[in-house]
Amino acid sequence: MLSALIAGLATGALYAAAALVYNVMFSTSKVLSVTAGHTAMLGGVFGAWFMQVLGLPVPLALIGSVVVGGAFGLLTDIVAIRRVLARSDEHLWLLSTLALATMVQQAIALWWGTEPRPFPRVIPQDFGAGLLDQKYWLPVIVAIGLAIGLEVFYRRTLYGKLFVAMSEDIFAARARGIPTDRIRMLSYVMAGAMGGLAGFAAGQLTFAYFALGLTLTLNGFIALAVGGLGSNVGALVGGAALGILSSIATYYVGGEFQQTISVGLLMVVLLLKPEGLFGTRNVRPV
């Protein structure tokens, strides 16, 4: 039971990290990008590749994963967001990010293979550590660190305040002279780097697996919708709740119904409180 809780917390932390990636991209562009989970998948796959195939030391591999994630974020902005946002049709971005996500996933499947491959040790530790194993606490620390870092970034730095300004009202921000296109690009690079870091930290839990991206995109979104869109605390709480709920359900019912239960959670929350636990209601259709 305790082991189920801890494993659930670790998985939930990864979901929370994916939800944070969504949040950062959403703040500047109002786009929920399907590529959010794929940044973490890239972090895991490239981390394993750097360390096992190229034989790089851990810090270099970590930097490499973050850079790959950031580059993918930049690519997302250039390819899938920039031209689409200029048009008024609001759901084109769903199609373009979905297309990009599919392409990345298939490219990784062709290059890396469709089998999950093991991820090497990041910190030297004995394999007998049981529940104190690094694969459980690394993702949790990274997710909490990312959330705290984001809050500090939003509150203390000029760029963070620009993000907040853009998420409040993008036209007003542009009227005040904020280079909105460049800030949006920065936010995508940042989101990609965060995803790469989270994927690297959770590599030992998830293995380096090409199909992780889609699962994370879905579960990160569920965490986000449960916690409330745009709220970082909500992302952490939603992710933890989702991870623990699905692992407890696995413990009692069996692993076959994991997806069904997590989507059930989403539906219940959306029916009872459509804006999520920590979200703000913003309804203005006209």
């Binding site: 199609l95 373009s96 979905l98 297309a99 392409m103 996933q105």
Partner: peptide, 20 residues
């Protein structure tokens, strides 16, 4: 056929960007 879904993704992206 080898590229499979990559090809579909590419087509979708091209159509969305060039010919919505």
């Amino acid at each position: 056929a080898k590229l499979g879904n990559f090809f579909y993704g590419l087509l979708l992206l091209l159509v969305v960007l060039l010919l919505p």
